[in-house]
Design a binder for these strands. Structure first.
Length: 472
DNA sequence: ATGTCC
């Protein structure tokens, strides 16, 4: 692989063989993965071979190896020119994303009763592998309403306030969902998990605004130094996973009929405008709505805990997915084109003035939410004009060690001790899960965010530090 | 990420 430096935060993987476009990696020299040791850049090059891909196969500064596509990747295909959709470009956790809420509380008031609130949050937030939910759905009919209506349906049923929806991507509901396409196994898994964190890197965290870079934008987002926030990172649980699995299999069967050949079986794809492509997109939208309702239900659980202990409310700052494919219009070679934009471990980052932003965010831009790791900072940024990657940015710190490596080098109990000694309360689900998420297993979030800003993907607004984490 | 295999 031939990699050329194009700027301080931009590298190009030259077109070679079946690649239709180059690869573009946004990273500093320090963050750029080694082409030999790290398989993620090979994946970025493989994605560049997909039918209909335009501009480039992009990698964000937090890129790391994933199923087929790298995590931290963005790929857009021209739907009118046979451009494909691929479940691997979205990920197993469809509509995994981040929600940030701002509390009517400052960090000194939190500190006075930290243990009480953390115990309450720990008891109220279902987490870990398997069952447990804030809202137990009675059956298929109610599940279908969630799959069609997302967070908007949850609010309609009283799980939140209408103002929440103005601060959700797509107003809390992705259009085009077809709940009838969701199979029996996905249904079975989805009924008992609505309002649950899951495991892996999912978490809910009490944070405080430590630093503001842009006071005017921070004010528009409701962020000021010392304000307590609550961040939720989770997705569509077993339901989204099952839908991804079902469609990967269906596409692996269908692909030869479309004459599509890919360098890796995990890049299974079909034309976005084919019957199989449309079915995937409609099922994916249903899973996205489950993920959005999931974060809405966890918000309700958190609000009850904050109200009971501090008598305060939580105002939604924003809710955005970082695992999704969306049909969007972007200029390609000067012409507006209808593209299927895959963002896998890459967040939407809309600039100021974008027409889909609510009026009170129109001047400030979309809040771009980038969580760090346990014990490290998280960032709120805003979108910028001229984003080279279809209004996308990185989604987190990005792994640098596998789960296995991480669990081998640290014990969960020791990690919890260290975090608590540093003033960060921890309510976990399993010792093994805690060890796998050790900060040492991740890249430096400050460096990743600086690279994203330097590459022109987004602009820093505020830095948040953790006070207490409920870990999935 | 995930009842870590159909």
């Amino acid at each position: 692989m031939e990699i050329t430096r194009e700027g301080p935060y931009r590298y190009r993987i030259e077109r070679r063989g079946a690649m239709r476009v180059p690869g573009v990696v946004f990273a500093s020299a320090d963050l750029l993965p080694g082409a030999e040791a790290d398989r993620s850049l090979r994946q970025v090059a493989d994605v560049a071979t997909l039918p209909g891909i335009v501009r480039a196969s992009f990698a964000m500064p937090d890129v790391h190896w994933g199923y087929g596509f790298a995590i931290g990747g963005v790929a857009a295909t021209d739907t009118a020119a046979g451009g494909v959709v691929s479940p691997g470009g979205v990920g197993f956790d469809i509509s995994c994303g981040v929600r940030l809420l701002a509390a009517g509380l400052d960090r000194d008031a939190f500190a006075a009763r930290a243990g009480t609130l953390m115990d309450r949050l720990g008891a109220a937030i279902p987490r870990g592998l398997g069952r447990g939910a804030v809202w137990h759905l009675p059956g298929r009919a109610e599940l279908e309403r969630v799959l069609a209506g997302g967070a908007a349906y949850a609010v309609e049923r009283g799980h939140g306030v209408p103002r929440d929806l103005a601060r959700c991507e797509d107003l809390g509901v992705m259009s085009g969902a077809d709940p009838g396409l969701v199979g029996a196994r996905a249904e079975e898994r989805g009924l008992g998990q609505l309002g649950s964190l899951g495991s892996g890197n999912h978490f809910a965290e009490v944070q405080a605004v430590e630093r503001v870079y842009d006071p005017a934008t921070a004010e528009a987002f409701g962020l000021r130094p010392g304000r307590v926030c609550f961040m939720i990172h989770c997705g569509s649980r077993g339901l989204g996973h099952q839908i991804c699995t079902d469609h990967v299999h269906a596409m692996q069967t269908a692909m030869p009929r479309y004459g599509i050949d890919v360098p890796d079986r995990q890049l299974a794809c079909v034309p976005a405008e084919s019957p199989e492509g449309r079915d995937y997109l409609a099922s994916m939208a249903a899973a996205a709505n489950y993920g959005r309702a999931n974060r809405q239900l966890l918000t309700e659980a958190a609000r009850r805990a904050f109200a009971a202990v501090h008598g305060c409310d939580l105002d939604l700052v924003y809710d955005v997915s970082h695992n999704l494919a969306k049909i969007e219009t972007h200029p390609v070679d000067g012409e507006p084109r209808r593209l299927c934009v895959h963002r896998k471990g890459a967040t939407l980052a809309l600039p100021p003035g974008h027409p889909v932003l609510p009026p009170d965010l129109r001047a400030a831009g979309q809040p771009v939410l980038i969580p760090g790791t346990m014990g490290t900072a998280s960032y709120v940024l805003t979108g910028v004009p001229g984003n080279p990657a279809f209004d996308s940015a990185c989604h987190g710190a990005g792994r640098r060690q596998s789960r296995h490596q991480a669990a081998r080098s640290v014990h969960g109990r020791d990690l919890r001790e260290r975090l608590q000694a540093a003033g960060i309360a921890v309510r976990g689900a399993s010792w093994r899960g805690l060890a796998e998420e050790a900060p040492a297993a991740y890249k430096d979030i400050d460096a990743v965010v600086d690279a994203a800003e330097g590459a022109g993907l987004c602009r820093k607004v505020a830095r948040l530090v953790p006070l207490g984490v409920v870990k999935g």
